[in-house]
């Protein structure tokens, strides 16, 4: 049986060279320096590191509840898509002129294909025997360039997001009110207001505010419906005075319902 000093290996691996291949791992005494048995000595230390890591991870989980936005609404035309953070660099790349519209293939296939293709084939592109980063400047600088561009693109993308506005998409900001779709006021609402303010008065981020928890009385609501306010143009309401009254009563009743419930469940910051 061949062991230890006489054996030849492929590179610094433990795969024996053809001549001496007998599948027996290198003898413990052959490793340089202070080696340690994996089982149980090293595994015990790894276990401790893993436990500390798990505690940190659970602190993250407990401190930041995972987000859930409002239920998918394919008709929501004003929603600004945002991918998960590790795809933001690709998303940002597609905003550059040379990688968008008719050149989109450059952004979606050519650049990522070259980058990830080079990563995939790195062992066959960088074939020299040197392992130190400073001794293989081309591989090192290309990798640094790639990492820097991914970080830069991600940063650019994150900086361009209005996080406060996005918070309005969260499910927590949906007022918990029951809307009586049979109410006469709702019929008026759906004809005049629904297209902007949403089918349950939730509003449309970037376009129109939600109508639950507004500081207006019936008369002011009537005035706003006819004359507009802020970005809302005048004459959005088209109907009779009776319908206008029904509409205002409906919105006021929803608001009263929300403020009544809001005190109970503790989610009343909106009011």
């Amino acid at each position: 049986m061949k062991r230890g000093k006489g054996m030849k290996f492929v590179g610094d691996s433990r795969v024996p060279d053809k001549e001496s291949r007998d599948k027996i791992p290198k003898d413990y005494s052959e490793y340089p320096g202070r080696t340690e048995a994996f089982w149980p000595n090293f595994l015990l230390k790894e276990w401790l590191v893993g436990a500390v890591f798990l505690i940190g991870f659970l602190c993250l989980v407990a401190g930041a509840p995972s987000p859930l936005e409002q239920k998918a609404d394919p008709n929501n035309a004003s929603y600004i898509p945002l991918p998960d953070w590790y795809f933001l660099f690709l998303y940002e790349l597609l905003k550059y002129k040379f990688a968008a519209s008719e050149y989109v293939v450059i952004g979606t296939v050519v650049i990522p294909g070259l980058a990830f293709g080079a990563l995939f084939l790195a062992p066959f592109l960088d074939r020299g025997p040197e392992r130190r980063p400073s001794r293989r400047p081309i591989a090192t600088s290309l990798m640094l360039l790639g990492v820097a561009s991914v970080i830069w693109l991600t940063y650019e993308s994150v900086a361009g997001v209005d996080w406060e506005e996005r918070a309005a998409y969260s499910v927590e900001n949906v007022p918990d009110v029951e809307i009586d779709e049979e109410a006469p006021g709702y019929q008026v609402y759906s004809q005049n207001c629904l297209s902007c303010h949403g089918d349950s008065l939730q509003g449309n981020p970037g376009m129109a505010p939600g109508l639950v928890g507004i500081p207006y009385g019936a008369d002011q609501i009537k005035d706003i419906a006819v004359n507009g306010i802020g970005q809302m143009p005048a004459n959005q309401f088209q109907g009779t005075d009776e319908e206008l009254n029904q509409l205002a009563d409906f919105i006021v009743s929803i608001n009263e319902q929300a403020s009544g419930e809001g005190e109970g469940d503790g989610g009343s910051e909106e009011e």
């Binding site: 936005e69 409002q70 239920k71 898509p81 945002l82 991918p83 998303y91 597609l94 998409y169």
Partner: peptide, 16 residues
Amino acid sequence: PWDNKAFFATQVGLEI
């Protein structure tokens, strides 16, 4: 999760 974020991000991904 089939929320808005999920739906629209997937739409973008499928366009890619």
